[in-house]
């Protein structure tokens, strides 16, 4: 089957039938709604605590959201194919510990980072191979690797947290590869933008939606279903590892529990962003905005001074509203 045929077969209906002017709004209506919700939440918090609307707070928000944004984009890829990766939080923790440990053993920043990313690659391959070639359920496979990576995060340093000995490692997060743009922001924009472009415009990206919608139909159409699935698990784990080294660069301290809450947050961000856990839908921009929304809620709850135990309830409510709005919107569509 030619590449052209693939492109036609997997092109979204909207882009075929609607005029260009309305196409953008139709394609990104969920994202626009999330963005509007974020703005409204922020304005609401700002009305109660004016400091919320300061440049400093926006910088804090961006920094706090960066690792979750990157992880969520990775998680999204797996979710689009109809899978799920529960291991991202543990991979995050293990990556941080391995990277810091490598530095403690005298490796330079680059080599240590590669060691950390290697953790992501290994777990991504293990997840992908077990899901695709062994035919095991993604939930079960990633539950196993979640437990294993989480356990290894303690084992590698006997549970002790590890400070980063490399004084210049902060540059990975806080340096400026492009003048005026802090690296963490650059990574978020590049990763989200590239992923969105690939998902929308590149044939291989469209395959993810096809596989998520119907793997059997995709196989009949000649799409390499197994390789597509495998690649999403590898990229997902790699992005979780990258989020971890970024966080490590910022915090300068590795902890075995660092990623413990991030797995659920990443999945929540993906769902808030409009993806279906049944596969076949979702966008990188939506996932990134979902991650930003979770961070905005956490920030808002803290700034207003609400008991921080309410964060989970507020996040849960937001997910419920997002899912309901999405469902109503799709029903009308």
């Amino acid at each position: 089957m030619s590449k052209r045929t693939h492109a036609v077969l997997t092109r979204p209906v909207d882009t075929v039938t609607r005029p260009r002017g309305t196409r953008f709004l139709v394609n990104y209506r969920t994202e626009a709604a999330i963005l509007l919700a974020i703005v409204l939440i922020e304005l609401g918090v700002g009305a109660m605590t004016p400091q919320a609307l300061t440049r400093g707070n926006f910088a804090d928000l961006a920094q706090a959201a960066a690792p979750l944004v990157i992880m969520s984009v990775g998680e999204l890829l797996v979710v689009i194919t109809g899978g799920i990766d529960l291991s991202v939080g543990s991979v995050f923790s293990l990556t941080g510990m391995v990277t810091a440990l490598a530095m403690a053993y005298g490796l330079d920043g680059v080599s240590s980072t590669l060691c950390g990313l290697g953790v992501g690659a290994i777990f991504g391959i293990v997840n992908g191979v077990l899901v695709t070639f062994a035919g095991l359920a993604p939930f079960v496979v990633t539950l196993i690797t979640y437990a294993t990576a989480g356990s290894l995060a303690f084992i590698v340093t006997d549970g002790h947290s590890m400070p980063v000995p490399n004084q210049n490692y902060y540059l990975l997060n806080s340096g400026t590869l492009i003048p005026g743009v802090t690296n963490f922001l650059l990574y978020c924009v590049v990763i989200t933008g590239t992923t969105e472009f690939v998902l929308r415009k590149v044939v291989a990206g469209r395959w993810l939606y096809a596989v998520g919608s119907s793997s059997e139909a995709s196989r009949l159409l000649g799409i390499p279903v197994q390789k597509t699935r495998l690649s999403t698990y590898v990229v997902c784990s790699l992005l979780a590892s990258f989020a971890s080294v970024l966080s490590l660069s910022y915090i300068s301290n590795a902890e075995a529990t660092a990623g413990s809450s991030l797995m659920l947050q990443a999945i929540a961000a993906v769902v808030i962003g409009g993806a279906s856990l049944f596969g076949g839908t979702g966008s990188a921009i939506g996932a990134a905005l979902g991650a930003l929304m979770i961070t905005v809620i956490q920030n808002g709850v803290n700034l207003i001074g609400i008991n921080s135990f309410w964060q989970g309830s507020v996040t849960g409510l937001v997910i419920l509203i997002a899912v309901l709005i999405d469902r109503v919107g799709k029903a009308r569509h």
Binding site: T54, D60, P67, S247, I251, E255, Q298, L303
Partner: peptide, 18 residues
């Protein structure tokens, strides 16, 4: 919630902003 440094950084930032 999680007794992590990451969480404490975010909370300290929010404290200093508020």
């Amino acid at each position: 919630h999680g007794l992590t440094v990451n969480e404490a950084v975010a909370q300290a930032n929010d404290l200093l902003t508020a």
